[in-house]
């Protein structure tokens, strides 16, 4: 199947790592050069396939972190018992190659030239990755659509893209970023503390009457709590797009 080169047919491509960026102690971004890359939309993901010397294969999905205007990049969090992420986070060096299938998914995507509805993004942990692609796309496209990111991390050190988010927040182009830290807060922390709940959603999200387009990404329990909270605040379920990720 991998050998069929029909036009437009989804096949496995070869990605070469051109640069790596350490985001946090557990998270790394891989910037890729993919021969035959067809371009992507903000929010899409790819499947990565690693093949061991004995032929054993492991496959996982990772969100694209980069704007469609930029080369494909994956941001990967190391799961200590994972089969794929420890390699991608700790071992890969520029010049290494692996197989990749994508970009895929037309559901969890945002295009800057879509209707100018407010954009509400809610991220738990590394669930920020596809939402970051949307924010980078928004900035690259010069969009001034009102946008908010509510981003929950365990600790300050685990906030992915921290400095870039500060820069995006400071552009004065209609984006507001709100952090909450669930496990520990540094001295002088002025953001929120604790999990995202209905009260926090009510305080920081757009009211339902403004009918924002909503994207929620994070661990399953986080996504369900946020989606339920938003529905209880009057947001229509059909306006809320979710992406859950499991543990491996």
């Amino acid at each position: 199947m991998a050998g069929t080169a029909l036009l437009g047919r989804l096949t496995w491509l070869v990605a070469e790592v051109t640069e790596t960026v350490t985001e946090t102690p557990r998270v790394r971004t891989l910037i890729l050069d993919v021969d035959g890359w067809p371009g992507h939309r903000a929010g899409q993901h790819v499947d990565v396939r690693l093949t061991a010397e004995d032929g054993y294969q492991a496959e996982r999905s990772y969100s694209l972190a980069s704007a469609p205007e930029d080369p494909p990049a994956l941001t990967v969090e190391r799961l200590d018992d994972g089969e794929v992420s420890p390699y991608l986070v700790d071992e890969v060096v520029p010049g290494d190659r692996f197989e990749l299938r994508g970009p895929v998914g037309g559901y969890f995507v945002w295009d800057a030239d879509a209707l100018p509805e407010p954009l509400l993004l809610v991220a738990g942990g590394s669930g920020v990755v596809p939402l970051m692609a949307m924010l980078r796309h928004r900035a690259a496209a010069g969009s001034t659509v009102p946008a908010k990111l509510l981003y929950s991390s365990r600790t300050y050190e685990e906030v992915i893209y921290r400095e870039e988010l500060e820069r995006l927040d400071g552009r004065g182009d209609g984006l507001e970023i709100v952090h909450t830290l669930t496990r520990a807060q540094p001295p002088g922390w002025t953001g929120h503390a604790g999990r995202v709940d209905v009260d926090l959603l009510r305080e920081v999200s757009f009211p339902a009457r403004r009918a924002p387009r909503v994207f929620v990404c994070g661990p399953t329990s986080f996504v369900e709590a946020v989606a339920e909270g938003l529905v209880s605040l009057g947001h229509r379920p059909g306006r809320i797009r979710t992406e859950r990720f499991g543990g491996t």
């Binding site: 993901h45 499947d47 999905s61 994508g102 998914g105 037309g106 559901y107 859950r244 990720f245 543990g247």
Partner: peptide, 10 residues
């Protein structure tokens, strides 16, 4: 735990 259908788009 489950994922969404979106996860197997590929």
């Amino acid at each position: 735990t489950h994922l969404d259908g979106n996860a197997i788009a590929g």
